[in-house]
Amino acid sequence: MRPWPSCDVVSPSAEPGPDPAPAPLRPWPVIRAALIAGVLWVHGTLAAPWPDLDGGDLRYDLADEELQRWAATLSAVGIDTTPRRLADRLVAVGRWSRRTQRALHRPFRPLLRLTGTGQAWGLFAFPDPHPGRLTVRARPAKSPAGDAAPWRVLYRAPGAGEAWLVDLLENRKVRGIYDDTGDRPRAGFLWNRLCDEVARRIFARWPDLSVVELRFEVMHVTPPPAAGRNEVVGVRHRRLRRRSALLGDAPRGAGTGEAGGAP
């Protein structure tokens, strides 16, 4: 037996070079080629970099900085504009683009949803110099001496803290839940439920802890020559979870309180 037998049968159409007498087109290859053309059109237009944005997408520090830089660049080449006018123009184009895109793809949405297929590739299109560092801390209600107990850091991104918590929070699927939270002014819709679940697991593991805090420390990454280590410039989406509210007889929903001060 040949260890890697070559392909013995080759379709005539695979041979390069002109065909002196082309055979008539058969129906199935024509249908297939038409279907593939349709698939390429749908996925090509899905992948196209549509400027899909609205006003909410511009309410970030990074968006402000980009608008100022681009307005300055455009003004320098003779296109007179300001960050405000540029933003208005972008939002107008973005809304038109979103409507057009939806209309184009509406007939294919059910199939794309059923199969979970599509195209959307940014791959760090806008690296954010104001990222959030997820930090999880916890503490008992009081120290043995009766004072307010100090916080104990259980997790700090990237990769520091209790091994099981690192594994949990850095699982790629779990990270997806808070991907859209750390660097944005509004928390993702699953942030509160993730906080509940993490707190439950911490309380189950350490009976002495009574309060868990999850928050993002807002950093400012400055490239050289002004580089300093990531400077903490604020805190974002802080959530406190108390054992009594989350696991006790407290009313339903009491464990999902909004950001608050120290307990």
Binding site: E65, W121, F124, F126, P127, P131, G132, A157, V221
Partner: peptide, 30 residues
């Protein structure tokens, strides 16, 4: 995948003279 990802990279950090995009990503704790 690659071509459209490239087209979307219009942030200043991807363009000259900055070219700090990977530096920023490297120092993003997430």
């Amino acid at each position: 995948l690659y071509g459209t990802a490239g087209m979307q990279k219009v942030a200043s950090s991807w363009l000259p003279p900055d070219w700090s995009a990977l530096w920023i990503a490297l120092h993003d704790p997430h």
